[in-house]
Design a protein around this nucleic acid. Structure first.
Lengths: 248, 248
DNA sequence: CGCGCTCTTGACTAGGGTCAAGTGCAGTGG
DNA sequence: CCACTGCACTTGACCCTAGTCAAGAGCGCG
């Protein structure tokens, strides 16, 4: 049981070191581990009485349908909370589906609110995580609206690196990534065909390699330059390459 | 004092009807009214010890710098809360600035958390508002990533109509809008020049007119068709033209 | 062996950005 | 009363990024 609380407590410790009893509360708040298979939907758009989950193992996607295509809003990795904001709405605004086989534990909003009262540090840490998730979505919006396809791709893969490193699932050299090019393209708001060309360019420029379900970061300074040192919104301090304030 | 609580309590009533004592708590949570002039920054990117505010009068923008340009994340209208999520982070990820002269009242996070404990219905209603704000940002992301400039423009102006109607600042015929074409373009992730052509097209198609700081909705069925009936994410029920489930 | 999925590459097209010029109007100062 | 400035908006010409259409390679699996 403590096993599956591992990633989330590790992540929250980037905000505040939690005491043992607080970690216990965090774990007690969660239901028992449940598995979903890759491709299964855990929540769908418009669903009522939907829940939030802690993602214990595997990767998930939150997405919305648009025209015929889907737009992936956010890629969720172990330790992330799924659908916390949506659960505050009467009807979910997003679909949440398993990208790989996943293990999740349910969180009831009532329990969360209760914990906010009894253990404010835990509540505050979870709100920090939710705010950070929103900051990532905002940055994603800026990415899609303002950055070129190359910058955007590099930026997203760099962000993933920082997030994975925070929970111990990657190093500054690279990480395993279960996203296909089609999934990555749906995330970045471009076609898989164009993404393929972008990835080739990044490879030829010796910046990063996205191949065989693994991302290799070959030139961190080069990538930082390309994307503009801008990982400050992650509000974490482990990433060495994040923004140095006001380097013109 | 009760005067300035008007818009926000009206908005929250779309989620849950608040009792008189709950409205009082909502008002007591807020600091005294403070004015900012158009163009003034209330919070800047990277700022620490930043606050959240209730926007009592006027319009504001939350935005981020990207390259040389700015991307407007969200246009805030009376009754909206400013920077609630950012306040959960150690450093603000966004800049918040006054679009018109505004009147705001500060909210301290500690007070908000306390109210969650003592008056859970008020806390829950405010979390609903925050979740709805996030849903709007998510929809904004889908807009920019997947919809054409014409659809996106129509969709945004329709969303604004629904939001303004909720607080009594517009009708289904139209509303006053203090955004210039340049501001709207920064919101929609396109150039002011292209937006100008898009607005001309919408005008010529007799769908809507954006002129002289006023938006006139000329053809709601046509606009709904163009944008796809998709205002369900606003989680409100006042808008007549919102999605009828599964009209193919 | 054939099917399905992922990835790759080429040729063509179009939506929207860039550059450049100009209109209309409100405010300001001579 | 009129020049002058600045802002919001408008229009045209041109070009480039990224989408579309089409074809095919490599690989795991029943």
């Amino acid at each position: 049981m403590q096993l599956t609380a591992d990633y989330i407590s590790r992540k929250l410790s980037a905000y505040a070191e939690l005491a043992q009893d607080e970690i216990s509360v965090l774990s007690a708040m969660q239901g028992k581990p449940v598995m979903f298979h890759a491709g299964e939907r855990m929540t769908y758009e418009g669903q009522r009485n939907h829940s939030a989950y802690v993602l214990c193992e595997g990767w998930a996607l939150s997405c919305k349908e648009a025209h015929g295509t889907r737009q992936i809003i956010d890629v969720r990795i172990p330790g992330d909370i799924l659908g916390m904001e949506s659960a505050m709405l009467r009807a979910s605004d997003k679909t949440i589906e398993a990208l790989t086989d996943v293990v999740v534990r349910k969180i009831r909003i009532e329990d969360f609110l209760a914990v906010c009262g009894t253990h404010p540090r835990v509540g505050r840490a979870m709100m920090w995580a939710a705010a950070r998730d929103q900051a990532m979505i905002v940055e994603h919006l800026v990415d899609v609206a303002r950055r070129s396809s190359v910058e955007r791709t590099a930026h997203f893969l760099l962000e993933l690196a920082a997030r994975l490193q925070l929970v111990g699932l990657g190093t500054s050299n690279g990480y395993d990534c279960p996203m296909s090019q089609a999934v990555l393209a749906d995330t970045l708001g471009m076609t898989a065909i164009h993404l393929n060309r972008v990835l080739r360019q990044l490879r030829e420029d010796k910046l990063l390699v996205f191949r065989d379900w693994h991302v290799t970061l070959m030139d961190l300074p080069g990538l930082s330059l390309l994307t503009g040192f801008d990982l400050a919104y992650l509000d974490q301090s482990n990433a060495r390459w994040q923004r140095r304030s006001h380097i013109a």
